[in-house]
């Protein structure tokens, strides 16, 4: 059993792929050069693949007599943006592209285990970054749409007593976003490793479909859904006022 625990810990550890040879002796972690995690490298691969596919799919677009490639590109774009637009509503059209990008990225990142790479979302740094950007987007949308005064006033709504809770939400919302994604992916990973350890054939293939594909895409959806919900919540008050 000690063997399994060691193995698991090893798998869970974020590997450092390489180190940028800039030594910063003042910071202990960077004393030996800046480490670049596996998640960053996998993210680069995902980015490269996504961008390459987009470029290939959107080569010489036409208005009519479209090619199959273009049909696929249009299908993907209209479906995904339609999905996000359905969640965020008419007011948040400006944020649809960003949310669709996040949806694509998390979806691909969660499912990349299928290709034998470690999902970047298993690295806390990535989910923290995603969550921080989400909450910044939510608050920025609030400031942009409502103006600073009304945005600040929103912390006192619906009654002034909830001010501490509203301020707390600034932290808890991204924290829950980040930990939900991280925990799900990590949990799925741990369970998959355990199953692989116990039953090495057939069963992992079946469960992999559930954990990597279904749960991964579901988590991507949930992340984007919650972010767009926060944004539309922010924008909704503007209409009521």
């Amino acid at each position: 059993m000690g063997n399994l625990a060691e193995y698991l810990m090893e798998e869970l550890e974020c590997e450092t792929v390489f180190k940028i040879p800039i030594r910063i002796p003042q910071i202990a972690a960077y004393a030996d050069g800046i480490p670049v995690h596996e998640s960053i490298v996998v993210t680069w691969i995902i980015m490269a693949v996504l961008i390459l596919i987009s470029i290939i799919l959107t080569r010489n677009l036409k208005v009519d007599h479209i090619s199959k490639r273009q049909a696929v590109a249009e299908l993907i774009v209209t479906r995904l943006t339609g999905l996000v637009e359905g969640m965020i509503g008419e007011n948040g059209k400006a944020y649809v592209t960003w949310l669709t990008t996040v949806l694509l990225y998390i979806g691909v990142a969660n499912a990349i285990g299928l290709f034998g790479m470690k999902a970047p979302t298993k690295d806390l740094n990535v989910t923290v970054a995603l969550a921080v950007m989400s909450i910044i987007l939510v608050e920025a949308a609030g400031i942009y749409q409502l103006g600073i005064k009304r945005w600040l006033h929103k912390f006192l709504e619906p009654v002034a007593v909830v001010l501490p809770i509203n301020i707390l939400e600034l932290v808890t919302r991204p924290l829950s976003l980040c930990m939900r994604l991280f925990g799900n992916v990590l949990g799925a990973f741990v369970i998959m490793e355990l199953i692989k350890f116990v039953v090495p054939v057939i069963l992992p293939a079946v469960l992999c479909c559930y954990f990597d594909v279904f749960d991964g895409l579901l988590q991507a959806y949930v992340f984007v859904f919650l972010t767009s919900m926060y944004i539309s919540e922010m924008l909704e008050t503007e209409e009521e006022a």
């Binding site: 998640s39 960003w98 990008t101 970054a129 921080v132």
Partner: peptide, 14 residues
């Protein structure tokens, strides 16, 4: 560093 890297990556991807 990795956190900022991810943020930059996401912005570039966007």
């Amino acid at each position: 560093f990795n956190l900022i890297c991810t943020v930059v990556n996401l912005l570039i991807l966007f």
